[in-house]
Nucleic acid binder design. Structure first.
Length: 570
RNA sequence: UGGGGUGUCGUCAAGUGGUAAGACACGGGUCUUUGGCACCCGCAUUCCGAGGUUCGAAUCCUCGCACCCCAGCCA
């Protein structure tokens, strides 16, 4: 079933674009780009940017480019390029023929740098890294001019050429823009625009030993590609004057408009590459695609759908204020989507054996079950019923508290699609007192779960599985990674790692599911009725032995009642 | 008096001088062979604060306050 995406909401970027179109700027065209650096995996914060850039382009009949910002060969690898492409297209976006690499422009960028030198707007500086930092001044004090600032154009051109030829050591010289060492904006204090890096580049090999810095490469790449709106995150706001300065200094034909928005933060998780890396390296998660990770690959493995993520990105909006979105919204979005598309099934996570005493020993019935009440076209299936079944341990209480509607001694409930059953006995372990088994009787007049002719009503419907026919599987229950809503809040406070939730993963090796699920395909999804949405793990499932990941629980009114009761007692 | 940003419900977020949208969360209810879904009701007399302009201010002005970003030859 197709799920509709949320209708676009008003935001400041759309307003800007609409005003531009109205004024016929850029001939009314809209060209955006998503410019990841291939040095790591994408997370849901990137998804926000992807949805924004590709979404805007689609909405206004424009195009969105996928451009790898690969100007630092030391940190970048091809492996990431493939994973990023996979994630972007998995999210549902198509860059068509517009796949680019900043490294494709190295030649043009080099010429731009030479032109800047010719115009007296750039110079080769021999200061060491440390000296450059000293000359830069501080936040409150102006910097001072480099002694190399007034070299002649000829000398600069020659030196820059020789930098390119590999005549100088790494770190011995850089090319700097000649702007203003007294600027309040540190980015304008003669920023480095080219550095010597004798490193092998994953695309250009050993062709270059000088590489452009982000500020130089990015604006020019945008300009070369005819980008109209260059959308980035807030921390680049201070770079906008430099972005504009470079394009102006070169009289660039196309001068894109940089627009900044606030990056995404989510409760109960962390989003920075560095922090996620700490979780991976420390072995707190199984990898970048661990289902608890906020990475696109983690969400995918967890069972999140592209539509649910797109929807989420639309719902959170786009603005400039720092914010932390409640992860409950993400969970809402995935439930909303999965409710429409996930086939229902029954699975018992913590099995409790139930013997139906008045049901014939060797009888088995095939009962009809609805595959998806939200989608009639999904049809029905047959499920086996027999004398011994499993139900959820949570669905029985020997001494039921108020508002507990489920099974209890002497009480009658419905087994979904099967029969009404009444609890007639509890079998316990003599020593431990642990409940080993329940004895029940069933009412043959309630076949299919229908109400009996006498009009008896029942307050609960339980899921169950026939012991003889069920498939035994492993189920993994995931919870939030951190116990604090904002684990990395504030400096000086406790380190975010101290808030790791020790119970974020619970493995249940002995669960029982409908026989039809024994061969469930990795990646397939389902709803275990009354429990939640699950997907078959793509990494650890084996043929005939699926491993189920819980994507998200169903909303659970009873659990909330119990929780608030516990709180009340405290 | 370094520069640049941002402050609207618990959390996101519209609003652009005409009298505070929506979503999530939360609380209550209807329905129910999922305590799911769906549906209904409630949830900011007030927009960081204080002044001012105006018939009228979240929107304009003034002065404060708080928070975020910037001193990589990272992006």
């Amino acid at each position: 079933m197709k799920s509709r995406d949320t209708a676009p909401a008003s935001n400041f970027i759309r307003s800007i674009i609409e005003a531009d179109i109205k004024a016929n700027r850029n001939d009314g065209k809209v060209v955006t780009r998503f410019p990841p650096e291939p040095n790591g995996y994408l997370h849901i914060g990137h998804a926000k940017s992807i949805c924004l850039n590709f979404g805007l382009a689609a909405e206004y009949g424009g195009t969105c480019h996928l451009r790898f910002d690969d100007t630092n060969p030391i940190k970048e690898e091809v492996e990431y390029i493939e994973s990023i492409k996979h994630d972007v297209s998995w999210l549902g976006f198509d860059w068509g023929r517009h796949l680019y690499y900043a490294s494709d422009y190295f030649g043009q960028l080099y010429e731009c740098a030479r032109e800047l030198i010719r115009r007296g707007r750039a110079f080769v500086c021999d200061l060491s890294g440390e000296e450059i930092r000293e000359y830069r001044g501080t936040l409150t004090e102006p910097g001072k001019d480099s002694p190399y600032r007034n070299r002649t154009v000829e000398e600069n051109l020659d030196l820059f050429r020789r930098m390119k030829e590999g005549e100088f050591e790494e770190g011995s010289r850089v090319l700097r823009a000649r702007i203003d060492m007294a600027s309040g904006n540190l980015n304008m204090r003669d920023p480095v625009i080219y550095r010597i890096l004798k490193a092998y580049h994953h695309r250009t090999g050993d062709k270059w030993c000088i590489y452009p810095m982000y500020d130089f490469a990015h604006c020019l790449s945008d300009s070369i590609e005819g980008i109209t709106h260059s959308i980035c995150t807030l921390e680049f706001e201070d770079h906008r004057p430099l972005y504009d300065w470079i394009l102006d200094a070169l009289d660039a034909e196309n001068h894109p408009q940089q627009i900044e928005f606030a990056r995404l933060n989510l409760t109960y998780t962390v989003m920075s590459k560095r922090k996620l890396m700490q979780l991976v390296d420390g072995g707190y998660v199984s990898g970048w695609d661990d289902p608890r990770m906020p990475t696109v690959s983690g969400l995918r493995r967890r069972g999140y759908t592209p539509a649910s993520i797109r929807n989420f990105c639309e719902k959170i909006g786009v603005a400039k204020r720092d914010s932390v979105v409640d992860i409950a919204l993400l969970e809402h979005c995935v439930r909303d989507d999965l409710n429409r598309r996930a086939p229902r099934a029954m699975g018992v996570l913590r099995p409790l054996r139930v013997v139906i005493e008045n049901y014939p020993v060797d009888r088995t019935e095939e009962l009809d079950a609805v595959n998806n009440p939200e989608d009639a076209s999904a049809g029905t299936r047959k499920i086996p019923f027999s004398r011994v079944i499993y139900i959820e341990r949570d669905d029985f209480r020997e001494a039921p508290p108020k508002k507990f509607f489920r099974l209890a001694p002497g009480r009658e409930v419905r087994l979904r699609y099967a029969y009404f059953v009444k609890c007639t006995g509890v079998v316990k372990d003599e020593n431990t007192g642990e409940i080993k088994e329940l004895r029940c009787t069933y009412d043959p007049e309630t076949r299919g779960g229908e109400s009996p002719p006498d009009g008896r009503k029942v307050k609960a419907t339980l899921h169950w599985v026939s012991a003889e026919h069920a498939a035994r599987v492993e189920v993994r229950l995931y919870d939030r990674l951190f116990s604090e809503p904002v684990p990395d809040r504030g400096k000086g406070g406790p380190d975010f790692m101290s808030f790791i939730n020790p119970d974020s993963l619970e493995v249940l090796p002995e669960c029982y599911v409908e026989p039809g699920l024994a061969d469930a395909e990795p990646g397939s999804i389902c709803q275990f009725e009354r429990l939640g949405y699950f997907c078959v793990d793509t990494r650890d499932s084996k043929p005939g032995a699926p491993v189920f990941n819980r994507t998200v629980t169903l909303r659970d009114t009873w659990a909330r009642i119990e929780k608030s009761r516990k709180k009340g007692k405290k």
